[in-house]
Amino acid sequence: MKSTIQFPFEWFVIAAAVAVAISGGILFYPTPSSGQRQSVEHVVGITDFEFAPATLRVRIGDTVKWINRDLAPHTATAKDESWDTDRLDQGEALSVAVTRGMTTDYYCRFHPMMVAKLQITTVD
């Protein structure tokens, strides 16, 4: 007589969930063992004398790319001038790395009424 082992149905559900979680981790996270998040390149457009978005959430290690879509030249410059894209003519872009302790309020040196900020966060 052939004997069979009966597993409760709940076990299958749990096993399936664990399998999905593991495969998802392997498939979608490049280095799960390091626990590090991939850096992201954010884009801030400069249009009609405004930075968009005016507040951008970023994390340490990300980069922010400013693209000037205006006819007039602009800059993205830290309020204390500790970092600066320098002059960006129409169609030009420049990226700045987000570093710990960096100044997050910035403006356009040519048009000081243009202001915006980066918001450094540790939460996704």
Partner: peptide, 9 residues
């Protein structure tokens, strides 16, 4: 748009 920004400036 540029000249209006100049006016504000």
């Amino acid at each position: 748009k540029i000249f209006q920004a100049h006016e504000r400036h």
